[in-house]
Nucleic acid binder design. Sequence first.
RNA 1: GCCGGCAUGGCGGAAUUGGCAGACGCAAGGGACUUAAAAUCCCUCGGGCGCAAGCCCGUACCGGUUCAAGUCCGGUUGCCGGCACCA
Length: 823
Amino acid sequence: MAANSKIEPYNPAEIEAKWRAAWEEKPVNKEDSKKPKYYCLDMFPYPSGSGLHVGHWRGYVISDVWSRYQMMNGGHYVIHPMGWDAFGLPAENFAIQHGVHPRISTKENVDHIREQIKQIGAIYDWDMEVNTTDPDYFKWTQWIFVQMFKNGLAYQKEMPINWCPSCKTGLANEEVVDGKCERCHTEVTKKNLNQWMLKITAYADRLLEGLEGLDWPEKVKKMQTDWIGKSYGAEVDFEIDWSNVPESADGKIHMLREKFIRVYTTRPDTLYGATFMVLAPEHKLVEQITTEAQKDAVDAYVKQAMNKSNVDRLQDKEKTGVFTGSYAINPLNKEKIPIWIADYVLADYGTGAIMCVPAHDDRDFAFAKKFDLPIVQVIAKDGVEIEDMQEAYTDAAGTMINSGDWNGKESADLKVSAPEEIEEKGYGYKKVNYKLRDWVFSRQRYWGEPIPIVHCEDCGAVALPEEQLPLTLPEVEKYEPTGTGESPLAAIESWVNTSCPQCGKPAKRETNTMPQWAGSSWYFLRYVDAHNDEMLVSKEKADKYLPVDMYIGGVEHAVLHLLYARFWTKFLHDIGVVSFDEPFKKLFNQGMITGKNGVKMSKSLGNVVSPDDLIRDYGCDSLRMYEMFVGPPDLDSEWDDRGIDGVYRFLGRFWRLVNENLERETQETPELLKTRHQLIHTISTRLKQFNLNTVISGYMEFNNKLLDMSAQGGVDRETLKVFVQLVAPVAPHIAEELWSRLGETDSVFHSTWPEADETLMKEDQIEIALQVNGKTRGVLNINIDENKDTVIQKAKDALGDKLSGNIVKEIYVPNKIVNIVVK
RNA sequence: GCCGGCAUGGCGGAAUUGGCAGACGCAAGGGACUUAAAAUCCCUCGGGCGCAAGCCCGUACCGGUUCAAGUCCGGUUGCCGGCACCA
């Protein structure tokens, strides 16, 4: 059937320009306190100079589809803002190379990317726009820091921290990936610096417990759980046997000597099996307990361990270590056990010292084998003591042996009860530990929020009073990091020299800046009250519009931004700024769009696909739809330009379907009614479940079906309207155009999402499969919900002589299948 | 090493609670329309055997449970992701 020749062809450029202008003038989503709110948030971008590619689009399209769906389904006022995470190194490096102030280049980049993002045709409310580098914004970032300082959560500490020699700045643990800088992949070294730290560890338990109630991908929750790394165990004291270290040797006297070495263990049940101890090379007792004979070897080892880079320390799985010459006493069996030092023991976890149970720990086993130390099994594996052990038995499962009065107990029970027993006997304490470390918060770079602290000789570190915020960055000539651990700000004397806010004496400003993650740790709160001069967000707005209902972005921030933002939100909750303590109720991680063969799109590889040409050739709606159709939204997908032809052709046919039926006045038939409700049901279900790629295939399937019906008589107006509504979230421009052609005067996005009536969508005739012994041998048309006996009789008739042998069993799954088992 | 996830045509991918594997699309081939091309429309499209009706094989591999397995269970291999000496 030829298309009606009078129908004008689908012209996306014209339609999209028309509706872009109309929406610009009269936005479809405006603040309306009478409607229920829905907050759908994108992870805001860093405004880089290279602009957006089709991969960036995906997340923004997903969130816009979801936002528009929320507007229509439930009549929500949707908070859907966009902003800029604009502090950071690229702008600063650009300044170093070209002498352009980061403020200037950042503004240019923001203006450029804002225009690109507008191409997506999303319902962003630009009145809410925030920029982390705007003094009116970072005033509040600094304010939060001051509150943390006042509450003892921001503190200074001199310690060896992760240092990136290329970025010339300190890094948080979260920013070190495989021993390398998360940004530039340079090997991270250690540097001893006085740092500002944020006490995220004070929130370790709450950050862990809070995960339980969140509708987040399990993967992300697990990553955070592992990162926090909570473990249960005991701290146990081992008495030091000082007899090998004469007190007079280096002038030390007994009184100053520690009596015990304290260790942390998660396996107190294996205490009888501890046959040696190992201290971290940095442990404070190492010097004291080392005997004269071992001194040279120990000194050499400590020196070498200190010089090892993170990467070496990670890669060298081979155990190394030296004997200190001293012994300790196992508190339970009173055995004398040697004390070693080795770099496999970390100085900054637990107590920096461990008891070693080689029979039941892989690392201790490897160490014992290498240095020929005794191995004593204390848990029977499968009821027996292993002869000539080849690997450690690490399960806490089995009966205790070689363990004094613990013999015969179950190790799994003992693992739980031992800490208390040890506590009663006075050898130690029950103890919980975390892998999470405090957040190294200082950066020795220019383009970040200045830390609002003044150092006064008399008063120490003093926070700037609130009325002096924001503390803005001074103009500088040189942006180069010094590399010495000092910020470039330290060279600006006129800025550094100030007076103490407390006593008025001359004092110096803190010259470090905050890390990139500071501004992004709370931006989602600011959007809903972006122009408030009085506070970071009013109580009223916060209560009305927060927290975030749906957060959409890449998985790469699982333990960085998402952990920090949760921490800051909990803190702001505790000081009464907001009344909730989890910022993001639901999280969705979209998969990455890659180039051919799953290679990440990058400028240097030249495989970046720009949306610009595609929009020109196919239009925004086609690109939006293809972003959804390219693959399941949560998985990575390879971009293939050719695929967009498919959705473009579909939109052309959809255009034709509606237009060729505009004037027809087709009456609704039972068949059309049924199809309409099946369509509503199919699309709504898939949309709700976030199966966005199959939403698109659903459109295509029903469009083909309706085109057939159109050719055979026509499609009624109500069905067309419903179809247009269902397409609207994905392809808003064409939908709005067709909606108005169907005679509607208000926006399709102000219409109510159609509901499927299950009774109307039911087929009355259905085709089911006929099987013999589980193999399909034909199909059968039956009435829906037809009685079992009738169906089976029909099936037997239809199968006829394919049914040879005795019928053993007849299976009928209603409306699905008949299976006859013969022998 | 430990912990997760995944494995389906030439390609991207569909398949409620186990119930006709390959929806939808891309690419490819054929046809219609056209002076021609583009666009559009129609048909074919997992492999093998067969003139045909039809039969056999097929969801990484091996085995199991079941009337019935892409789906569940046990084992193996490969790929991806996270953690990486946290005691």
